[in-house]
């Protein structure tokens, strides 16, 4: 018995597919998972003036802001991902996202050039569990990992409730698989190449997470030029050069962060941790490029 549920959150559509014997139980668990996703939307959205994150962004440039365990855990996770990716993934890009027009109208070029940001200016106090920014232009924006974080929490709740087989995704760019459909190795997910003449790849997810990033996922026009929504936090500019990156990892939050980082990192910097499988296409490449071991995870579709 398959039960499908969906909800709108974080500016996209989340879909849940649950497999099991008891339809009413599956629906009830799916609805709890949707509530969990909605709660994270209300807490982490930069678009909602009343969200917890908006409150933190308003106060943290002035004083340490006490936060709850849930948010502090996310901040700590972001800090380690920021370090692991050598700053290629950076959630402290709130002002940059605004400056380039992904949260509002773009600011003028001269102002944009002056923006400073970076997770290096985010101070996390483990003892007091507070967050403070030491630069007035710093603002957190969890756009890169919020979907993954919400999916991780929702899938944890589903597992704890007894769901053994499910696939949940947010906007088709972040997904978590619980178990596998009966008789299958995993939930098969296909990833298009974004380039004509290059075949799609697929992977079979089983108790894993997948994230797909592409600069063309969202476009803004700045000074007459079209720019993609993935920003290189080190340069303060939207990235050019990568078409798509797909990452399979143990958690959707890590997959989200690493797929963004892979878009940002140039090839020479793109070493992945051993537990991360990545397939990507650069504008200059003719086809898919796999991180070591990723050929075991991804397969090129043969038509």
């Amino acid at each position: 018995m398959i039960v499908r549920l969906a909800t709108e959150a974080m500016g996209t559509r989340f879909e849940l597919v649950l497999d099991g014997k008891d339809e009413f139980f599956l629906r009830a668990v799916g609805e709890e998972a949707i509530q969990e996703i909605q709660e994270h939307h209300r807490r982490l959205s930069v678009f909602e003036r009343g969200s917890l994150l908006s409150q933190v962004n308003a106060k943290a440039p002035h004083r340490p802001v006490p936060v709850d365990d849930d948010l502090f855990d996310l901040l700590k996770l972001c800090q380690s991902l920021w370090k692991e990716t050598r700053g290629a993934f950076d959630p402290a890009v709130g002002h940059l996202m605004k400056a380039w027009g992904f949260r509002d109208k773009p600011v003028v070029t001269s102002q944009r050039a002056g923006w400073k940001c970076g997770f290096g200016s985010v101070i996390l106090d483990e003892t007091g569990r507070t967050v403070q920014y030491d630069h007035p232009d710093t603002a957190l924006d969890f756009g890169g990992v919020a979907k993954g974080w919400a999916l991780d929490q929702a899938s944890r709740l589903m597992r704890e409730s007894g769901v053994e087989r499910a696939l949940i995704h947010g906007g088709t760019s972040s997904a978590v698989a619980i178990g596998a459909p009966p008789g299958c190795e995993g939930w098969r997910v296909e990833i298009p190449s974004h380039r004509s003449g290059v075949a799609a790849i697929h992977c079979d997810l089983c108790d894993q997470a997948l994230a797909v990033s592409s600069p063309s996922g969202r476009i803004a026009t700045v000074d007459g030029e079209s720019v993609g929504h993935v920003i290189d936090p080190r340069q303060g500019r939207p990235v050019h050069g990568m078409l798509v990156a797909a990452v399979v990892a143990g958690s959707a939050t890590a997959a989200d962060a690493w797929s963004t980082a892979r878009i940002v990192l140039c090839e020479s910097d793109a070493t992945m941790p051993v537990d991360i499988a990545c397939a990507s296409i650069a504008c200059a490449d003719e086809g898919w490029m796999f991180s070591p071991g990723a050929e075991d995870v991804f397969a090129i579709r043969c038509d």
């Binding site: 009413f24 629906r27 009830a28 668990v29 609805e31 709890e32 704890e160 409730s161 007894g162």
Partner: peptide
């Protein structure tokens, strides 16, 4: 659109 049902472990 919701069932109002809560899953009870």
């Amino acid at each position: 659109k919701t069932s109002w049902r809560v899953p009870a472990g």
